[in-house]
Design a protein around this nucleic acid. Structure first.
Lengths: 146, 146
DNA sequence: CTCGATGCAAACGATTTGCAAAATT
DNA sequence: AATTTTGCAAATCGTTTGCATCGAG
């Protein structure tokens, strides 16, 4: 499978868009960050490498990366849009600690299958889903026992 | 089980807050709307009944309703905060048609159980979850066959 | 050379907040 | 009477857009 950089280049070419140093830097920084990064966080990291890059360019590039399915938006419901690397990654859901914010990526094939069945039962063709489990992690549970 | 109006009254009393005609009207309108209503939609309905009510009051009341678990925010990822009646309702998830926006409330006990197990496996104490299935409904599928 | 891309600042939409006046307990 | 609530408008937050300039192809 081609690397994300190449996939992005292809996407740009297919749309008659251009590769630029800014886009290269933003993608590279995004991949290295490899988490659930917000546009602003990404902007700060990028700015550290090249202070001349504008915030709008980060927003615009992140949009392109989403359109090309290289990035995907994840929404933890806290009002901030976050992105994660999607290209070449397996699907996963999220298990989030409401105390410390720890975030574990999870998959359960049985649940995935049941979701398909459930959608079908209602005549839907399932395209994607988002599942977030919110709870309290081990560490935070222990902490509260003090 | 006491009606939501009473539950709200109790919540207000417990916090030394006051019941007002505006809050009464907003809650009543919210309950009648009974769907996945945004603050602005609710504001418009309320305004139709009493044009003197301000938008900020609707936002503030919706916040109170959420805090008291009478309403719950649902997020379909389209950037608009929606609310649904939570008090006295059973938990459910959402099956959303990406074409027409149709929204079906669903529950699958098996999935619910598996979510519990999954959280436990990672040492989490599950508190709540959100599951959204996005797809294309029957009608829209047929429409696209034309 | 031609478009698309950039940085900036202004514009935006949803939500929140400060404030003085009004209403509830 | 004391304190909360209200409506209004201004402020805020994250994000988007218009524009003149810059740069990739």
């Amino acid at each position: 499978m081609k690397p994300p950089e190449k996939a992005f280049l292809d996407y740009l070419a297919s749309r008659n868009l251009k590769m630029t140093p800014q886009r290269r830097l933003i993608l590279e920084t995004f991949i290295k960050a490899d988490g659930h990064i917000s546009s602003e966080e990404l902007y700060n990291k990028v700015k550290a490498k090249d202070p001349s890059v504008g915030q709008a360019t980060v927003y615009r590039t992140l949009k392109l990366l989403s359109e090309s399915d290289i990035a995907e938006a994840v929404d933890f419901g806290d009002g901030v849009a976050r992105y994660e690397l999607h290209y070449g990654q397996e699907h996963h859901d999220h298990l989030i600690c409401e105390r410390c914010g720890k975030n574990i990526e999870i998959v359960d094939p049985t649940i995935e299958k049941l979701q398909e069945d459930l959608a079908e039962k209602y005549g839907f063709e399932l395209q994607r889903h988002k599942m977030y489990l919110f709870g309290v992690c081990d560490k935070c549970k222990k902490k509260s026992e003090d």
